[in-house]
Simulated assay, not measured.
Amino acid sequence: MSEDIRSGAGRLGRLGQAALGAAREGLHVFPLQPRSKLPAVRDWERAATRDPEQIAAWFSARPYNVAIACGPSALVVVDLDDGHGETAPEPWTGARHGRQVLAQVAAAAGESVPRTRAVSTPTGGLHLYFRAPVGVELRNTAGTALGWRVDTRAHGGYVVAAESVRDAGYYRVADRAPIAELPGWIAAALTPPPAPRPGEVAPVVVEISGGRARAYVAAIVEREAAGVAAAGEGTRHRTLLAAARTLGRLVGGDALDEATARGALLAAAEGYVGRGGYTGAQVARDIDDGLAYGMRLPRRIDAGGAR
């Protein structure tokens, strides 16, 4: 750090100091809008840095919140959310927090959750920081890999850093322990299956006579959207994920445009946001995960040879 930065560090305020502290630990940071989780810079993953001069320039300008870019920082962050009174689905019945779910997953693997750096969130959640395994590019997950109320952030994701503040309150360091290596049992659960090679997975072909293919696909979209819209608390996550997988198969088979599928699901799940702790970001992640999964198992609608 240059002498100018050292002498001016005290003028950066609490948030700027937090950003510099994270950078000194080798973590790549970038600014979020004040009191927000929204990036304040474009292309945040590329912009994220450990450069103290860039950090000082950002955080001397405004009281930005601080974000840590997980991919460049070689981090996997396990995000344990509070259930906020929502009934946990099977097999997590009785759980009230992602902490309990992760403990169950660990016990099933004959392991325990190791101590590591932990940051509490304003809404009762907990972020557990882990060093990413070498040679494996893990991505974000949303309740599908580890369980109910357990999300992860890795490549393509970021977390709000300690000392940041939102209207709901502060992000605080809950445990200053060194950042531990990601346990193998978590890494195994998060490692995606290899993408099928071209021609490896033949699409399921549904033959529709009489030129009714378009109506057939439209009926599937309508049915899945209606199921999503009607889902009650405790079933919304898996209903949305299943619907996205179904439509993803049609996208993978060139029977449905991805934007159309995504738009239909987003509209159907609009009522989820703000209920039972569900957020717009969670809806988007569930749709992304489900579509990606379904596209690996394409379903083609063949109307007299037409695709």
Rank of each mutant, 00 (worst) to 15 (best):
E3N: 12
R6P: 00
R11W: 10
L12Q: 04
L12D: 11
G13P: 06
G13A: 03
A18T: 04
L20G: 06
G21N: 14
G21T: 13
G26A: 01
L32K: 07
R35A: 15
S36E: 05
K37P: 02
L38W: 08
A40E: 12
R46E: 15
A47R: 15
A48M: 11
R50Q: 15
E53S: 14
E53Y: 05
I55R: 13
A56N: 10
W58F: 13
W58G: 11
F59G: 08
A61P: 03
A61I: 03
I68K: 02
C70Y: 03
S73K: 04
A74G: 12
V76T: 06
V77Y: 02
D79L: 03
D81E: 13
E86S: 13
E86Y: 01
T87V: 14
P91N: 12
W92L: 05
R99S: 13
R99H: 06
A103S: 13
V105D: 00
A106C: 05
A107V: 04
A108L: 11
A109C: 08
G110N: 07
G110W: 02
E111Y: 01
V113W: 07
T116H: 01
R117E: 11
S120N: 02
S120F: 02
S120L: 08
P122N: 08
P122W: 09
P122F: 03
T123W: 07
G124H: 08
Y129E: 12
R131L: 12
P133V: 08
P133S: 05
G135C: 09
T141V: 01
A145T: 02
L146Q: 06
G147I: 07
D151I: 02
R153E: 03
A154I: 09
G157S: 07
A162L: 08
E163M: 10
D167F: 04
A168C: 02
A168V: 01
Y171V: 03
Y171E: 08
A174T: 00
R176S: 15
P178R: 11
E181P: 11
E181W: 04
L182P: 03
P183Y: 09
A189R: 15
A189T: 04
T191M: 11
T191E: 12
T191L: 07
P192M: 07
P193R: 14
P193M: 10
R197L: 15
R197Q: 14
V201S: 03
V206Y: 06
S209T: 14
S209M: 08
G210D: 10
G210M: 03
R214K: 13
Y216I: 00
A218L: 10
A219P: 01
A219S: 14
R223P: 00
R223V: 00
A225W: 02
V228N: 00
A229Q: 14
G234P: 05
G234I: 00
T235S: 13
H237C: 00
R238E: 07
R238M: 10
T239A: 09
L241A: 06
A242I: 05
T246N: 12
L247M: 12
G248I: 06
G248Y: 02
R249E: 15
G252T: 01
D254M: 09
D257R: 13
E258K: 12
E258G: 01
A259W: 07
T260H: 09
G263C: 06
L265H: 09
L266S: 12
A267M: 05
A267R: 15
A268D: 09
G271L: 02
Y272K: 04
R275K: 14
D286C: 11
I287W: 05
L291Y: 06
Y293N: 07
G294Q: 09
G304N: 08
G305C: 10
A306D: 13
